[in-house]
Design a protein around this nucleic acid. Structure first.
Lengths: 342, 342
DNA sequence: TCCGGCTGTGAGCAAATGCTCACCGACGCA
DNA sequence: TGCGTCGGTGAGCATTTGCTCACAGCCGGA
C-alpha cells in the first residue's frame, strides 16, 4: 500500500514533497512561509505535506523505551475503540507480571484521579494488587465504593471492600464498603438485601461513580467466581454451554460481547453492565494468562474504556479479534466510539 | 535513595514523552485530547511534546530521493541566511554537472516566476545553460532584462542579451537587450553610454527587477572576465592583490564580502551591488569547480538570496566558512536576515 | 460539439497550536 | 524564620493549521 503510493509519485513530485517536508518538519518553517518560497498557495502546501506524510516520504519514529508496547496499545485502542490501553511487557514469572500490570494500573489511576472523583471497585486478583502500588504524589479527596458484595471464600485482599479500604488509605481518601455478599442463595434474599437502605445507598453511590476499576473473570472451572464459592463448577459449566466467555462484576458475556442471560444473574449483588455504561471511565485490569476470550468478549461488549493488560493477553486478544470477526448484529455494539469521549 | 528516585522519574518521564509523542504524531490526536487523556493541561502537553522532539524521542526522517542534498541545503540557508539553496549531487563529468545545476536553476525559475515578473540577467557559463532547460508549463508574461553589457570575446550563449532572448523564447515572454559592452576603455565613454537614453532605460529596468539571475565569477587568470576580454590578466592579478575573490556583474568582493574598490569599476556597464540589494530575489547559479572562495565572498556580501550550486562547491564553501570565520566589521553584513523576507 | 462528472484549486472559517505573561510554590541563603 | 530567586504552571491571545465549500478547467462519452 505504502509502496503503491510511493510508486505513483513522479520523480520531480517526490523531490517537491521531500523539499517541502524538509522545510516544514526539519527546518520548522510555517506552511505560509513555505508556500511563499515555493510560489504555491498555502492550502496546496498543506495538501502536499499531507501527501508527503501519507506516502511515507516523511517517516516519524518514536524512540520508545524498550519495555513499552506502544504499537500494541494503539492497535487495541483502534480495534476496540478504547480511550486508552496500557500493555505491560511480558515477564517469565506470572506473579511479577501481575504486579507489573497492577503497577501500571496504579500509575494510571494516579494520573486520572483528582479531587472529587468517585471510584467503583470490583473484586479480582489483579485489581487486588493495585493498592500496593497506588501512591499518588499528594493527598487525593477520592471516594472508593465497592461495586460488588464480598466473597468469604477468597483471600481478603481481593475482596472489593478491602481493596477500597487500601486504595483510600493510599491517597488519604474515603472508602465506602458494601456490607453484603456477592452472591446469595435466592432472588428473594437478594431483593431483601437490596431493600436495605445501607446496601441500596452504597450500590447507588457506586453507580454514580466517574471511574470504575474492574477485573475481567474467565469461565473455566478455576475462575475466581468458582474459587470464591460464588458459583459451582456446574453453574460455570452451564454458563460456558450458553457461550459465556467472561464476566465483569458477575455479568457474563459471550465472545461477541452479548450478555448471557442466566438465573444466577438475579442472585448477584453488583453493578450491572448498564450501570457501568454510564460510568465515565471503566478501567479493566487483567493479567492472568489464558484470558483472551474473556477479554475479547468484554471489549466487544463495549463497556471497557481503559484496558491495562499484559503483553501475552494483548497479542492473543488482537489475534482472536482478527481471526474470529465479531458477528454483525451483536448486542454490545462492539467498538463504541462513545467511550472515546469523556 | 535520591538517585534512585531521580532515575525513576527520568524513566517515567521518558515513558510519558514517548506515550504523548505516539498519541500525537502516530495516532494524530490533538493536544487537547491528549491533555485530557493524561490529565494534564494543554500547554503542558505542548511543552512535553516539544521536549520529546528536542530530546530525540521523536525522530522525523525525510525519506529524500538519493540525489537530493537537503542537509547541505539547509546548512547553506542557515549559515548564510539564504532564502533558498539548491545543491546538485556531484557528477564525474563537469559538463554534466553544469547542466544539472542549470536545470535546477531553470526549475527554480519556473516555480518562482509568474506573470509580471521582471528578471535581471547577468552573463556566465552556468547562467548560459539555464535557457536550455527553462520550459515552464504555460506561457509566462515575464520580462528578461540584461543587467550587464555584452562581451564580444566569449561565445554568444553566455552573453546576457542572448540569455535573455533564449529565456524569453522559452516562456513566451519579452527580452530587453542592453546594447552596450560590459567594459569600456574609460570612464568618459562609460558615462557617455550611460547618457544614452536606450542604455539608461534598460539598466533602469534591470534595476527595478524583482528577480536577478546571476553567475559568480572567480579571480583566477582563466576566469570569465579575463577570457571575455573585459579584464587583462594584469588587472585581475591586481584585483587579487587587493583581496578580491570573486564577482557578480563585475562587482568584486573580498573573502569577507567587502567590496573591492577598483578603477575598473568605473568602466563597467552593469548593475551595482547596491542595485542588486533592492532586488527581491537574487538567484546565483554556480557550477564551475574551484569557486568556493568566490562564492563565500559573495554570500558574505549578502546580496545572494538563492544559491544554485554543485555539491562540491557547497561543501567547500561550508568548510571554508567554518575554518575561516568572517571578520567582525565587514561591510556586507554577512548573513542578512533581510534576504529572508520577500 | 456539447455536456456531465471529476479532479484540483483557493477563499474563508473554525479549530488547534505556539507563545507570552503573571503567578505559585520550592529551594537556597541569610 | 524570612526573603529573594527560579523553575514550572495555566490563562489568554495571536498565529497557524485543517477543513469545507464553491468554482474552474479537464476529460470522456453521447
Amino acid at each position: 500500500m505504502r509502496e503503491e503510493l510511493r510508486e505513483e509519485l513522479r520523480e520531480d513530485e517526490y523531490e517537491l514533497l521531500a523539499r517541502l517536508a524538509q522545510r516544514y518538519y526539519v527546518d520548522e518553517r510555517t506552511q505560509e512561509e513555505i508556500a511563499h518560497e515555493f510560489a504555491l498557495s498555502r492550502p496546496k502546501v498543506q495538501r502536499l505535506l499531507d501527501r508527503a506524510r501519507r506516502s511515507g516520504v516523511v517517516a516519524i519514529h518514536i524512540q520508545a523505551p524498550p519495555w513499552l508496547r506502544l504499537e500494541l496499545e494503539s492497535q487495541l485502542r483502534e480495534t476496540f475503540g478504547l480511550s486508552d490501553a496500557i500493555v505491560c511487557s511480558a515477564r517469565a514469572d506470572p506473579l511479577a507480571e501481575r504486579e507489573a500490570v497492577a503497577q501500571r494500573a496504579a500509575r494510571y489511576l494516579e494520573r486520572r484521579l483528582h479531587d472529587g472523583c468517585v471510584v467503583a471497585v470490583s473484586h479480582g486478583r489483579a485489581v487486588g494488587e493495585v493498592p500496593r502500588f497506588f501512591r499518588p504524589g499528594s493527598r487525593l479527596d477520592v471516594t472508593f465504593v465497592s461495586a460488588m458484595g464480598g466473597s468469604p471464600g477468597v483471600a481478603a485482599p481481593t475482596n472489593p471492600n478491602e481493596i477500597c479500604r487500601a486504595l483510600a488509605a493510599g491517597c488519604g481518601g474515603e472508602a465506602v464498603s458494601l456490607y453484603a455478599p456477592a452472591y446469595v442463595e435466592s432472588v428473594e434474599i437478594r431483593d431483601q438485601l437490596l431493600a436495605q437502605e445501607a446496601i441500596a445507598q452504597t450500590l447507588d453511590r457506586a453507580a454514580q461513580a466517574t471511574v470504575a476499576l474492574v477485573g475481567i473473570g474467565g469461565t473455566d472451572d478455576g475462575c475466581t467466581m468458582v474459587r470464591s464459592g460464588c458459583l459451582t463448577t456446574d453453574e460455570i459449566a452451564w454458563l460456558r454451554s450458553q457461550g459465556a466467555v467472561g464476566d465483569v462484576l458477575g455479568n457474563y458475556v459471550d465472545i461477541d460481547g452479548r450478555p448471557v442471560a442466566s438465573p444466577h444473574q438475579d442472585r448477584l449483588l453488583a453493578l450491572t453492565v448498564d450501570h457501568l455504561r454510564s460510568v465515565e471511565t471503566v478501567v479493566a485490569v487483567v493479567s492472568e494468562p489464558e484470558k483472551p476470550r474473556a477479554i475479547l468478549g468484554m471489549l466487544r461488549a463495549g463497556v471497557i474504556g481503559v484496558l491495562v493488560v499484559d503483553e501475552g493477553n494483548a497479542r492473543a486478544v488482537l489475534d482472536l479479534a482478527a481471526h474470529e470477526p465479531a458477528m454483525a448484529g451483536r448486542a454490545g455494539g462492539g467498538p463504541r466510539p462513545s467511550q472515546r469521549e469523556v
